[in-house]
Nucleic acid binder design. Structure first.
Lengths: 333, 333
DNA sequence: TTGTAGGCGTTATCAG
DNA sequence: CTGATAACGCCTACAA
């Protein structure tokens, strides 16, 4: 049973707890050489490891941050978490990962729990349903960063993809290939999720800017499992879409499912661009043109901002950090 | 600034700290109705949340478990983590996720850190390099569960896929389709990772059992980026393999890359089965035959075992919990 | 039924 | 240079 405390070390080394504590915290400025050695020896023999919980209690800091993911089913989310973890590891922070499943109640429960555990800050993919809670936290000046989604009512730094740009990239690519009947299909927009909405807006705006017609029937945000059906409806029109933008990875797969079931040929029967660079994009037939998000940068930046903030750095409120999507031109469009 | 403690609540309610503590822990057996009410009110007005860190210090338990993932780049790992998180959430545990990147030093650092943070137990995808450390932990009777990989020297419950069975399933499927020149290609086996080795063993054994020839040249475990090259070597043989088993998701994509670059047709030029049911399997051309692991069950079981163990349940040492793979027959074989 | 006192393992303050 | 001593916020006997 490991229960060797600082007191044991102190006794064994014949010094006081305080001295050991000093030693542990690298404050050896005025410490005698032999004292150091004795302590080091004692620590070694006893296999002493400081109890971080006790330290946290005293210092009111846990070197742990909470990450609340909206929905871990998206490849995008896991990539972000990966990247956050990487940065945190380098900074000696730990992350507690929570999956809110787009459920505001779960989200709230997690936030409360995380705070009770005294995590030093939170990175969240926020649902728009806990505005009050978030606002409360920011008022308390609690370190927090939003990622992927933006909550206008709350003054918090947000790491965002330039979603309109992403849509624009796609539309322009469609135009370049001469498609004029285009659409966008994404997962449900019921819960006002920023990226989905912005992508749709960007899509429409770009079409307007380019003086192209917007067909409302080709613009849909529905549950994943409804996507094939929804696409079916579009394709049955007398003038079906020639090109579709998939709003995210899950939508893309759902669309491909429809394509396969109906023996369509890409891009002849339907051109396709997906937002999120899925791992199989380059091995698919045909290779899939995608718009990729700099997930690594985004995650790293989120962690970096949060940790700097925790360490006391001021930061401009309400900042929105925008990240550029990039078009990866392959063969599906 | 949230710094409302149990003392504040006690004062406000006009009772003592202990009474509030009782209340918080549902021990209201002998508590006066009005006392309860007053406390509830005070808690509410003050927005009191107990400090879990302080509680942990006292109770020596943190309702948090550590999850050390060997390499989060595998879809398999993230699925497992997801499932563990889900079970833990239901049991009111939190998970701290650590990515060891198949690096024993990182793994060791994480284990130390997790213990210092007093996590109640650990679920690990172990590297085989920290045997001593793991053994130490089990000797201390520290709650721990291994997943995906097995370390024979350490007596710890392990959640494993029946890897030999997985290979067998594939070989038999190959046989059924009349392929006799078959091979297996997986990511590096340098570091003695159980599943990869067992899959290869299972592959060879099944071939033997079925009285089929084993061509050593068609059996390889190399770094992912070497896989296309390695496959190339096989295909250049006078009698190249007719069917290949991909050891995991990353290998599968690497193989598909080769296939695409060389304009091979699946399954005519090369039949393919992949272990791990990747999300695009059913939309690929042709649809990919895969062998899927019950990741959800495996993750849940790991969490369940660990938490039961933490809560004091005895469990048979050295148990190996085996999970059955299933063949999902599609069109690539 | 409720209150008092002491301790969990660290760190911070301030003497010595 | 080192050591008492008092917190940190909570829980748990034991007392009242």
């Amino acid at each position: 049973m490991r229960t060797v405390t600082i007191t044991d070390v102190a006794e064994k080394a014949g010094v006081s707890k305080s001295t050991v504590s000093q030693y542990m915290n690298q404050r050896y400025e005025y410490m005698g050489e032999k004292t150091k050695e004795r302590i080091a020896e004692a620590i070694d023999e006893l296999g002493y490891q400081p109890n971080i919980v006790a330290r946290s209690l005293k210092q009111k800091t846990s070197t742990t941050i909470g990450v609340i993911v909206a929905n871990i089913a998206h490849e995008f989310s896991t990539q972000i978490v990966r990247s956050i973890e990487e940065y945190c590891n380098a900074s000696n922070y730990h992350i507690i990962v929570c999956n809110a499943e787009d459920n505001p109640e779960k989200e709230k429960k997690y936030i409360d729990m995380l705070r009770a555990k005294q995590v030093d800050g939170i990175i969240a993919f926020p649902t728009s349903m806990n505005v009050d809670l978030y606002r409360e936290l920011t008022l308390e000046n609690y370190p927090m960063i939003f990622i992927d989604r933006h909550v206008p009512e709350v003054e918090v730094g947000s790491i965002m993809l330039d979603n309109k740009k992403a849509a624009q990239l796609a539309v322009d690519e469609f135009i370049e290939h001469g498609y004029s009947r285009t659409g966008i299909l994404t997962t449900s927009i019921q819960n006002h999720v920023t990226p989905r909405i912005e992508r749709i807006e960007g899509f429409i705006e770009t079409l307007h800017d380019r003086d192209l017609p917007v067909n409302e029937q080709f613009i849909r945000g529905v549950e994943v499992d409804q996507i094939p059906k929804e696409l079916g409806k579009m394709m049955e029109q007398p003038e079906p879409p020639e090109a579709i933008l998939a709003g995210n990875d899950l939508s893309l797969i759902a669309i491909l499912k429809y394509v396969k079931e109906n023996n369509l040929t890409i891009p002849e029967d339907l051109a396709l661009i997906g937002i999120d660079d899925v791992p199989f994009a380059s091995v698919y037939y045909p290779e899939l043109t995608t718009i990729s998000q700099p997930t690594t940068d985004m995650g790293r930046r989120a962690a970096e901002l949060l940790i700097n903030r925790i360490k006391g750095e001021k930061q401009s409120e309400q900042a929105r950090y925008s990240f550029e999507p990039t078009l990866i031109r392959r063969a599906s469009c």
